[in-house]
Simulated assay, not measured.
Amino acid sequence: MLDLLAASAPAVALRGSVTFYLLVNAAHVLGLGLLVGAIATLDLRLLGAFRAAPVAVLAPPLVRVAGVGLGLAALTGLALFSTRPGTYLENPAFLAKLALLALAVLNLALLHAGRPWRAALAGGAVAGRLRVAAAVSLAAWLGALLAGRWIGFLQ
Rank of each mutant, 00 (worst) to 15 (best):
G31H: 04
V63E: 15
G31P: 04
L154P: 04
R51N: 06
A52S: 15
R84E: 15
L121E: 03
F50A: 12
F153C: 00
A109C: 00
A53I: 13
T83V: 12
G31E: 04
S137A: 04
A135D: 01
A74V: 15
L5S: 00
G123T: 05
A40H: 03
A127F: 03
L106H: 01
L130P: 02
P10R: 02
L44I: 04
G124P: 01
I39N: 12
V68Y: 15
R45C: 09
T83M: 11
P61I: 15
A127K: 01
L4E: 00
L34Y: 05
G69Y: 08
A40Q: 03
A96W: 11
R118F: 02
L42H: 09
A144W: 08
A133E: 07
A59N: 11
A56C: 10
R84F: 12
L46P: 11
V57I: 12
L101K: 05
T41N: 09
Y88K: 08
D3M: 04
F81D: 12
V29C: 05
A9R: 10
G67K: 15
L111D: 06
L138V: 00
G128Q: 03
G77F: 14
V68N: 11
L34A: 14
V68Q: 12
L110D: 00
A59D: 11
P116I: 00
L46M: 13
P92I: 08
G16F: 06
F153M: 03
G71F: 07
R84C: 10
A119F: 02
P92S: 08
A73G: 13
L58C: 11
L110P: 03
A38N: 07
F20T: 13
T76F: 14
L130Y: 01
A119K: 04
V68E: 11
V55E: 14
A135G: 10
S137T: 01
V29H: 04
S8R: 05
A125Q: 09
A93C: 06
T41A: 15
F81G: 11
V29F: 10
V24E: 02
R45P: 12
A9V: 11
G48P: 08
F153I: 00
R15H: 04
R45H: 13
A38G: 08
W117C: 02
Y88I: 08
L101P: 05
A99K: 03
G48K: 11
L101Q: 07
V63Q: 14
R131Q: 09
V12P: 00
R115H: 03
W141I: 07
G71E: 08
L100T: 07
L98P: 07
A113H: 06
V105M: 07
L100D: 06
G77Y: 13
P85N: 14
L70M: 13
G114S: 15
A93S: 09
